[in-house]
Design a protein around this nucleic acid. Structure first.
Lengths: 333, 333
DNA sequence: CTGTTAGCGCTTTCAC
DNA sequence: GTGAAAGCGCTAACAG
């Protein structure tokens, strides 16, 4: 048996099943025009299976002018559990809507955005960072219908800001404000996550203002216990002392915890700490970390709906639900 | 300005620049046939920019019969830092080879494999789990040239097993064997990660055999301190006691650490623990966790090379380097 | 260098 | 239900 190099096409199936190519197309796409006998349908399916027929996405896309791929563009920052879970939820949410969600990580040094158009024809692009104007324009003319920037930081090139990331910071602050007069904020030392960090900090700020508390004392630290320890000393030496700490995420919160241990201090007795994400490590920290957790499935549904609305027009489901935020209260705060 | 709905095609560019379509194609693809004046080249590029031309990947793929997309198929298990980093390294490694790496998470309930062919025409698929025979056959006939199963667990449908995952377990065991006579293994309670867990455990087993130590005492536990505590009690009550623990990854190692704290015990005094992955939390654990770290960039290079070899034939670079494994020794072991 | 032409595989008319 | 034919946008091959 010499290997057959040619692709199995829908015409082959039609020939084998003894039907027209149109019929094959109808069967394979479950066209509403249900004028097809069950017998022919079976014949077509059998032929397709026998020949090992697989449709050509490229041809399909070329014909339709649009694929059913949604491209998620991941920024350059480290991918932890939070993004991982979000990706899975987005995959699920888009699958429900008959869209295939794939992710590309825009690592520095990797292909530029424009190179990606050469490879993929997504129906929509879902990005975690705003695009530059020229990128956005390029996508538009590439026939990509929607561009959704999840976390609008500056309005720059962003189509829609559909997350209230500052609700996270607000939840942290509100919880701490019950027993602490002066709050501190651990800001990440990685500028790449500023799209997340800034709104979270803003949330803390506005709650402080609302409750008549002084401005939060913001410190940028790396993920090292030593750096945390020296910041903790500064905080506790202030007057009044800073004793309620909101961290950008669980990792930075755990850094503070490690800093406290280093100084022989203890949470929440000497200082209360609260993280974000409820990563697996949070429950195992010492002491177990109180943390803010987003309703990722709901967030994913919201994003998917936004994309659908952009693709199909406003007739898509309204789903105006604001994803809820929950506090997982453990021992650290 | 009425919005122009039609796509800008290469023919438009040719018309605007006053050149033939072939010339446009040559310019845009930097064809080796360098018979093109710099003047015409500039004219073409200017026209393309002016019109906002973007090539159609679908048409390109249809023409060539193959795209330059490599699809990474992520299994269903939780995505942590380890996978996240690997994805980024793979993106980089494939980009260097002019391939676009995208990832699809095969969440349960999401689209089936066969649905993905409807959306994407990858040149290659890189999976973390073996395919079923029928899936593999389907991919072949869909024109996808390579199917690489990273972690071959059963030989089922796997083309190549290019990782020595058991080297990880071996490194753990060797380190502990220096000061512990009896080793234990924390096996994950999630069967989905068995592709990783089994070879790691095998590595521990073979080192024990090699050094004349008794078989490791394997326990499957969930990620809760209580479960860890009761297992720890059993281990310490054994005769001889089990005092050197290899964990499947950092999270399970941290669970053991939490269990020890719960019992008022301490690592490494009462029991030594060693993890895998060097996740950010490992350095912040209490005590800081000793862990095994893989050389992810090298692993990614290896995978990318494997794919290239499958795509281009054996003329691709040999790169027989086995990625090195390193021990990050902290305090827990 | 230019112009033309064919064809990748699919869907969708438009007759029959 | 069938068959033929057009066209999505791109590339490559061929005569000029």
């Amino acid at each position: 048996m010499a290997p057959r190099s040619r692709r199995v096409t829908s015409a082959d199936v039609a020939r084998d099943a003894g039907v027209s190519r149109a019929t094959v197309s109808f069967v394979l796409n479950n066209t509403a025009h249900q004028k097809i006998t069950d017998a022919t349908r079976q014949r077509v399916l059998a032929a397709a299976a026998k020949l090992g027929y697989a449709p050509s996405p490229a041809a399909r896309t070329l014909r339709y002018g649009r694929s059913d791929v949604v491209l998620g563009l991941l920024p350059d920052w480290p991918l932890g559990h939070a993004v991982g879970n979000l990706i899975q939820e987005l995959t699920l949410a888009f699958a429900k809507r008959n869209l295939t969600f794939v992710v590309h990580s825009s690592v520095r040094g990797a292909r530029s955005l424009s190179d990606i158009w050469k490879a993929l024809t997504p129906a929509a692009v879902l990005a975690f960072e705003p695009f530059t104007d020229s990128d956005a324009a390029a996508m538009r003319s590439a026939g990509i219908e929607v561009i959704v920037a999840l976390y609008d930081s500056s309005g720059l090139g962003a189509e829609a800001s559909i997350t209230s990331a500052n609700a996270i910071g607000a939840a942290q602050a509100r919880h701490l404000a019950a027993s602490h007069r002066r709050l501190g904020y651990v800001y990440p030392d990685d500028e790449r996550v500023a799209v997340f960090a800034r709104p979270r900090l803003d949330g803390v700020r506005s709650v402080c203002a609302e409750l008549g508390l002084p401005e939060p004392d913001v410190r940028t630290i790396p993920l090292t216990p030593d750096a945390a320890a020296s910041t903790i000393r500064t905080w506790l030496a202030a007057d009044p002392p800073v004793t309620g700490i909101c961290a950008f995420n669980d990792e930075f919160a755990m850094t503070v915890l490690a800093g406290l241990r280093k100084l022989g201090l203890e949470a929440p007795r000497d200082m209360a700490v609260i993280g974000v994400d409820d990563s697996p490590a949070a429950a195992l920290a010492c002491p177990p970390l109180t943390t803010v957790v987003e309703d990722l499935p709901a967030v994913a549904e919201l994003y998917a709906d936004t994309v659908m609305r952009a693709l199909d027009g406003p007739e898509a489901s309204a789903s105006p639900v604001e994803p809820r935020i929950r506090l997982e209260v453990r021992e650290s705060a």
